[in-house]
């Protein structure tokens, strides 16, 4: 059964040239000089209940704008959003009871208050029955180890601790859908992994439909069955992670610090795509040549100091998708 249906969704922002100052600020109300930014451009997708989907794109691709329309905060310029039979921005009050939202860059908790007070306030706002509230709090406290955090004011928490509290806050009222906009942004590797595992459990055990935006492929690699890739407002890929990797993710990157300067670097089946002083970036196709073979060849001809292998970045994959012309 489909739970979210998005059809021909578009959002334009009109950006005015607004000079500073009081009266000129007011003048901005009537000014005619503006340009249009097409933040979301004809986006279509349907999600099923219980799906866990990654919404991926580089910075400025249109992820947050999409999430804000899905959560009813922004009104679409055109197109249709139907979530559980509701139009988010029209039925906001009714709709917000049934969804949970986490924005990685801001908190929905009250800055000056101890975390527990924020939870209590949310209990009233969402009119959560006492029993449900207690059960959920116990469940999330244990899963996210909140015990020593809840008595502290939000402003004293680290980013990772705050995120754990924000995740709890978004789920206390048993939402059917959880929207997360860059929930792992700024977190360290351990905290990121904790968030991912938590989301996976929430999705699996509580049948919560999850949409998660990120620019970090690692976030979605293990936990999302389906990926939507957005670039400059358009969906350029909609499918599984494996198919994506199969098609576009074969490139690996070897970053090498050379011991001294070489005027020319040439290795068979390997592209030198960047040079900065003695550091070089080598791209290779893992189906054509293995990483250990590349390393052997490099060390055979050049004196090296250090090397690292990196996974493909989202920008790289987006570039590949365009190159292959498969932007259906």
């Amino acid at each position: 059964m489909s739970i979210i249906k998005v059809e021909h969704l578009c959002k334009q922002f009109k950006v005015r040239e607004r000079p500073a100052g009081f009266w000129r600020g007011l003048g901005g109300l009537f000014s005619r000089t503006h340009h249009i930014i097409q933040a979301v451009d004809d986006v279509n997708f349907t999600l099923q209940r219980g799906d866990m989907v990654g919404y991926i794109g580089a910075n400025g691709a249109g992820k947050s704008t999409t999430i804000k329309m899905l959560t009813g905060i922004l009104v679409p310029t055109s197109g249709k959003i139907d979530v559980m039979g509701l139009t988010p921005y029209q039925h906001r009050r009714q709709y917000t009871r049934r969804i949970g939202v986490v924005f990685g860059q801001r908190t929905q908790l009250w800055w000056d208050l101890p975390v527990m007070d924020s939870f209590e306030l949310l209990k009233h706002i969402y009119e959560i029955p006492e029993r449900t509230y207690k059960q959920n709090l116990a469940f999330f406290s244990e899963l996210l180890q909140l015990d020593c955090l809840t008595s502290m004011p939000v402003r004293t928490l680290s980013l990772g601790e705050r995120m754990r509290c924000d995740l709890t806050a978004a789920l206390l009222h048993n939402p059917e859908i959880l929207y997360l906009d860059e929930p792992t942004i700024g977190l360290d590797v351990v905290a990121k992994e904790q968030v991912r595992q938590f989301l996976q459990r929430v999705n699996a055990e509580r049948q919560v439909t999850v949409i998660l935006t990120t620019h970090d492929l690692n976030d979605v690699e293990k936990i999302c069955q389906r990926l939507l890739i957005i670039d400059t407002g358009r969906i350029i890929y909609d499918g599984g992670i494996d198919a994506l990797k199969q098609r576009y993710g074969r490139t690996r990157m070897l970053i090498v610090d050379l011991a001294r300067a070489y005027s020319k670097i040439q290795i068979e089946n390997v592209d030198v795509i960047r040079r900065e002083g003695n550091r070089i970036w080598l791209a290779f196709d893992r189906d054509t040549i293995s990483a250990s073979e590349v390393i052997t060849r490099v060390t055979a001809h050049y004196e090296i100091q250090d090397l690292t292998i990196s996974e493909p970045e989202i920008e790289e994959i987006v570039r590949k998708i365009y190159q292959s012309g498969m932007t259906d």
Partner: peptide, 13 residues
């Protein structure tokens, strides 16, 4: 600050 976003997400007037 954009904090208004978090108010709009909640079932309150």
């Amino acid at each position: 600050t954009g904090e208004v976003v978090t108010d709009l997400m909640k079932p309150i007037d």
